[in-house]
Design a protein around this nucleic acid. Structure first.
Length: 290
DNA sequence: CCTCATTCCTGCGGGC
DNA sequence: TGCCCGCAGGAATGAG
């Protein structure tokens, strides 16, 4: 469940511990971890060996490391991916998928992933922006993000507001936890039709999204089920600051009403039944046309 | 173009 | 005790 704050925490760790180092060798222990690299594990390793890492970048939940070859190592942590810096002498993790050895004496980089939804690939010529993520929207913390464009695009959609927040082609970096948190802060129910949001309501929601992401980064991310850790294997502590997520039946921190849990998009949604009123009508766009 | 359901995967915990 | 099932869920994919 790494979302933007967790991925950003990992990016910062990679910037500190990996940028400037040269890769001596790569071991792919599980082919599924490089399934997004069409040329296969051997080509993946060959494209990285001898390359120097120039930077650590992020868009939404994607990470990429530009290399001196002009290519980039691109990665997504999926549900349970971890990037760990460990001494060579440390025992292998059970779910170790890929190991990166370096030409110096520093720690090796390990991609560990229990549920294997994550993966790495080499993006040819992808140092500036990997083509694999060109369809991913800017995230709200990107300096190039244009608030008015997002507000307009959100209100043009014919869907529910939580679906829109989770759509990485509209705005990236927001997952189930921070969507619920931002909606609670904005006092909006996730089923609200996006087309019914006023401009100020949409703009306010964006502010709450940005705020909760920023606060979570300061806390080092959320470690709801302890699968997510930074590059040193340490947990963040934003889970202590969650307003609704995972708090079913506990009192709303604003009004005291018991937090409700609903199933939505094959996952759980948490909200306050008093602060976040359900929309009266369902989304029925063209009922008049009949 | 837009929206939405499905699929991938493994460990954990509740229920019986 | 042990088995089974549901749940956790991001994003690619294909259908409509």
């Amino acid at each position: 469940m790494p979302e933007l704050p967790e991925v950003e925490t990992v990016r910062r760790g990679l910037a500190t511990w990996v940028v400037g180092r040269t890769i001596a060798g790569v071991d792919v222990g599980h082919p599924r971890a490089v399934r997004r690299h069409p040329a296969g594990p051997a080509d993946f390793a060959a494209a990285l060996t001898g390359r120097t890492v120039l930077a650590a970048c992020r868009r939404g939940k994607y990470l990429w490391l530009p290399l001196d070859s002009g290519d980039a190592l691109i990665g997504h942590l999926g549900m349970s991916g971890q990037m760990l810096l460990r001494p060579e002498s440390a025992a292998d993790e059970i779910h170790l998928r890929i190991r990166f050895r370096f030409t110096d004496d520093g720690p090796e980089l390990r991609f560990v992933d229990q549920r294997t939804f994550g993966g790495l690939a080499v993006s040819p010529g992808g140092a500036t922006l990997p083509g694999e993520i060109s369809h991913i929207a800017l995230d709200p913390l990107d300096p190039s993000f244009v608030d008015d464009e997002f507000v307009a695009a959100l209100r043009r959609r014919r869907t529910e507001v939580k679906r829109a927040l989770l759509d990485q082609t509209l705005v990236s970096g927001v997952g189930n936890i921070y969507a619920d948190e931002a909606l609670w802060r904005a006092r909006l129910h996730g089923a609200r039709p996006t087309s019914s949001l006023t401009r100020p309501a949409a703009s306010g929601l964006l502010s709450h999204v940005r705020e909760v992401l920023t606060e979570a980064i300061c806390a080092g991310g959320t470690s709801f089920d302890s699968l997510y850790v930074n590059v040193n294997g340490e947990s963040g502590y934003f889970d202590r600051s969650l307003g609704v997520y995972g708090r079913e039946s506990e009192p709303c921190l604003r009004c005291g009403a018991p937090i409700r849990r609903e199933h939505f998009m094959n996952r759980s949604s948490y909200s306050c039944p008093r602060c976040q009123r359900r929309p009266r009508r369902r989304l029925s766009p063209s009922i008049k046309d009949k």
